[in-house]
């Protein structure tokens, strides 16, 4: 069980040349992730979802201060433990395609990731992970700049899954993909959860996260508002606890596509 308890983050930054100010970007963030679960974290861009992911694996920018607790399997997840587990039992699929090394062929990068992740036969593991995502033959051997956006996303996903990570944090893995590739990536995450891994899916796309997720945590303005089972997003959202979550559900184009109620709710929350 991976747990975030009352996580808060402050940025220390400059205002003008000299004065510094503390900006709180996360407060009261709590959620749990179980093995075998696909847990979606949904919210507006800029709400702080990516920062939460960075805090989980211990890769926050230098000017941040963290409060609150992280727990993994009943033991505190501190910086030393994060460093020991990162890339091995705890893997991040980053949002930025710049995370790929531009000078190294992609199958080699996946093999390195597999080796870091403790795979006995890294090349075979890399090949398997890439094949599962449809990266075979020539396309698996390309340099990052020769990959389309969708392929690069799948390489990043393969890197996170080639090792034996038990916990996966996917930060916007489907952004910029067309419907076919988006579904492919989300289905792969679902399969990983079904094999017993805990998957945290961070996304702004509620509609498609609902198709694969077990539970959904709604994130707004730096805090987690509520966690609900995916089936609670149904009908007019009566089963949802917070106004914001209901507004988010109702704002989908195939529901009400509603603004007025939604905007009031956004100000309420």
């Amino acid at each position: 069980m991976l747990e975030i308890r009352q996580l808060a983050l402050d940025f220390l930054r400059y205002r003008g040349l000299w004065r510094r100010e503390t900006v709180t970007c996360l407060h009261n963030v709590s959620l749990t992730l179980a093995r075998g679960e696909l847990h979606a974290v949904v919210g507006a861009s800029g709400a702080g979802k990516s920062l939460m992911a960075q805090a989980l694996i211990g890769l926050l920018p230098g000017n941040t201060r963290r409060r609150g607790e992280l727990w993994l399997d009943g033991e505190p997840l501190d910086a030393a433990r994060q460093a020991a587990l990162r890339g091995k039992r705890l893997a991040l699929i980053p949002q930025s395609l710049a995370a790929l090394d531009p000078l190294v062929r992609s199958h080699r990068q996946v093999a390195w990731a597999a080796q870091r992740g403790g795979a006995a036969a890294p090349w075979a593991a890399a090949e398997r992970a890439m094949a599962q995502l449809g990266l075979v033959g020539d396309s698996a051997r390309r340099y990052p700049h020769q990959l389309s956006g969708g392929m690069a996303r799948r390489v990043l996903l393969a890197m996170a899954t080639a090792g034996d990570a038990e916990w996966l944090i996917a930060d916007e893995p489907s952004v910029g993909l067309d419907p076919q590739h988006r579904d492919g990536v989300l289905d792969q995450l679902r399969r990983l959860a079904d094999t017993g891994k805990g998957v945290l899916l961070i996304t702004h796309d509620l509609r498609h996260a609902l198709r694969v997720a077990d539970r959904v945590t709604v994130f707004h303005a730096g805090t987690t508002l509520e966690t609900a089972p995916a089936r609670a997003f149904h009908g007019r959202g009566e089963a949802l606890a917070s106004d914001y979550a209901r507004a988010l559900w109702r704002a989908l184009p195939d529901n009400d596509f509603a603004r007025p109620a939604a905007r009031e709710a956004a100000q309420l929350a």
């Binding site: 709180t24 800029g46 920062l51």
Partner: peptide
């Protein structure tokens, strides 16, 4: 990310 800045103390 900084768009969601709420509490500030300088």
């Amino acid at each position: 990310m900084s768009g969601a800045a709420q509490a500030k103390t300088s």
